[in-house]
Design a protein around this nucleic acid. Structure first.
Length: 552
RNA sequence: UGCCCGAUAGUGUAAUGGAAGCACAUGUGACUUUGACUCAUAGGGUCCUGGUUCGAACCCAGGUCGGGCAACCA
């Protein structure tokens, strides 16, 4: 899992190649333009990967630009979180951190320039009135009265809008394009509106703010962005993007659209994510079940796996839905390669090794990774009483079963071979403990006489075990596409078993690790020490189970 | 019944007029001190109808199906 993603190509890179070889462009400048009104999720990761990754591939640069043109919706609290998430993914914007609000003065001047060209006018229509004038897709619109206003009067009105002489909603500045255009976005779109709102960067300097369509292309142009990538829903806005830059006669940035990421069992709309948080369906934005980058980080997913996914799904204009299994496979591949092994028992039953001395303790040196000797070993204590998984005992087990059954010899991973002699159950038949005997000649887990055991199970010494809160996470929804049923709300498909909290028995080393450290608990799954994990209060989150084992 | 975009195995994506590949998923087998990993192996695809061409997934025409667009949001 390295930098191979930079080698990928796609239709936008084909265009860049052509632009570079034709001389249309001599460098590649991209930008990632989040609005600071929420947390970044894996859909944004695709955009970040494309924006930063493309700049990287062409030795260009990628700007981080906060698109803060709507003070009512935005909040500075998101700014740091967004930067942290981008850095976590491994990208660096260097000194190229910008704000749309940096350009408010220029945007105002540009608006005045349009008015002077007769390409913009002040419109006194209310929202509803304009809606009526705009018409519907199949019928042309009607010209608003302000369209014929003189340039001088427009200039005066616009300045008075800026000076705060009018209330919110009374006037807008509109581009004067074509009320009959088949593209609704070209029917005299609003480019400035009055909003007497405090802005986190510009304070109370402005009471008019530019609309996205006007602001975004100008931001791109000012920064010299050559290839401005966004998702498909902006495709119909592109004629307006081009129109504004052409009328302004400024640097012509170009917009390219790709389809956004969709994954089965995942919902990515900001509004719905907010609902989950507000209604307490999850513990917060960084709940490990959330598809937010902070949630996925807490869950134990790696930035490398997220980027690899973005690389593998590619970049096209086709809006499909990628199976989550692809991502899970990439995650397991990464975690299998890079996480250390440990032993933990999540559903414990007691094993007593009857012929093992009461006070004896063995320290076994067990490899941290079966295929990577260089990752070293660790000491794991063994004693007379152990915890093993409830699943690792079965009455009258078939041959294929890997675990104890009466009379069968099993390998205790890295320790000894042991045979189960007796099972003790309660009145309901629930297994309470196993009575076993071990072979002292099999230290380390192999028999001097060469006899084979088909089963190896994990264990934790009861005397040394550390109790930990372990959070077993599963898919947040029960269906592939929770938004697919028009009759039902997506929350109707919430998986009631998406979180199960248990107390597990850990090998002692695990209590001492730093929050965020990832492990494979052998034969159980991949786990990550939670951000609140400590040696006094160990907490682990399950990232994923191991690949589903074959059925018996 | 307006405009824009799209369609390649179950899913995602290559092939840019010259043998339809890859990954995930699925089936089978081998190996294993993790039922993991690894290895081997199998099945499965160009939306439809015409046209151009020696040759079409690719170019053209018409259709079908899917998505997007009517905030003073981004």
């Amino acid at each position: 899992m390295n930098n191979e993603e930079v080698k990928t190509t796609n239709f936008i890179h084909d265009i860049i190649d052509a632009d570079l070889s034709s001389g249309k462009r001599t460098e590649v400048v991209t930008r990632f333009p989040p609005e600071p009104n929420g947390y970044l999720h894996i859909g944004h990761a695709k955009a970040i990967y494309l924006d930063f990754g493309t700049a990287e591939k062409y030795n260009g640069r990628c700007h981080l630009r906060f698109d803060d043109t709507n003070p009512e919706a935005e909040d500075i609290e998101y700014v740091n979180a967004i930067q942290e998430d981008i850095k976590w993914l491994g990208y660096d914007w260097g000194e190229h951190l910008y704000w749309a609000s940096d350009y408010f003065d220029t945007m105002y001047d540009y608006a005045v320039r349009l008015i002077k060209k007769g390409k913009a006018y002040v419109c006194e229509l209310t929202k509803e009135e304009f809606k009526d004038h705009r018409g519907i897709p199949t019928e042309p619109g009607k010209e608003p009265p302000g369209r014929t206003r003189s340039m001088e009067e427009n200039l005066d009105l616009f300045e008075r809008m800026k000076n705060g002489e009018f209330e919110d909603g009374t006037y807008t500045l509109r581009a004067r394009i074509d009320m009959t255009s088949p593209n609704l976005h070209m029917r005299d779109p609003a480019i400035y509106r009055i909003k007497k709102a405090h802005h986190h960067n510009t304070g109370d300097k402005w009471c008019i703010y530019p609309m996205y369509d006007f602001a975004h292309c100008i931001e791109d142009s000012i920064e010299g962005v050559t290839h401005s990538m966004c998702t498909m829903e902006f495709e119909v806005h592109r004629p307006l993007y081009d129109w504004i830059l052409e009328e302004l006669e400024v640097f012509q940035s170009h917009q390219y659209e790709f389809s956004k990421l969709n994954l089965t069992y995942i919902v990515l709309s900001k509004r719905r994510l907010l609902q989950l948080v507000n209604e307490g369906r999850v513990s917060g934005w960084d709940d490990p079940r959330m598809p937010t980058l902070c949630g996925m980080r807490r869950r134990g997913f790696t930035p490398e796996a997220i980027k690899k996914l973005c690389s593998v799904v590619g970049c096209t204009k086709f809006e499909g839905i990628t199976e989550i299994e692809l991502f899970e496979s990439i995650v397991r591949d990464d975690l299998n390669e890079n996480s250390l092994r440990a032993m933990a028992v999540v559903d414990p039953i007691k094993v007593i090794i009857e012929n093992y001395p009461e006070d004896q303790v063995d320290e076994f040196e067990i490899p941290n990774h079966p295929q990577k000797e260089e990752l070293g070993t660790r000491q794991v204590p063994f004693s007379r009483e152990l915890w093993i998984e409830r699943d690792d005992y079965m009455d009258d087990a078939p041959n294929k079963f890997k675990g104890f059954t009466i009379g069968r010899e099993v390998r205790l991973r890295g320790a000894y071979l042991a045979t189960c002699n007796e099972v003790i159950k309660d009145a309901d038949g629930k297994v309470l403990e196993l009575r076993c005997s071990y072979d002292p000649e099999t230290k380390g887990g192999s028999a001097p006489d060469g006899r084979k055991v088909r089963s190896t199970i994990h264990w934790v010494s009861a005397k040394h075990a550390v109790d930990a809160e372990v959070r077993l996470y599963d898919r947040l929804y029960t269906v592939e596409n929770p938004l697919g049923d028009k009759e039902k709300d997506f929350k109707d498909f919430l998986n009631p078993e998406s979180l199960e909290v248990i107390t597990a028995k850990l090998e002692p080393m695990l209590a001492t690790v730093e929050p965020g450290t990832r492990f494979q608990f052998e034969r159980v799954g991949y786990f990550c020490a939670d951000k609140d994990h400590s040696s006094e209060q160990p907490i682990f989150n399950r990232t994923l189970t191991l690949r589903a084992p074959r059925k018996l």
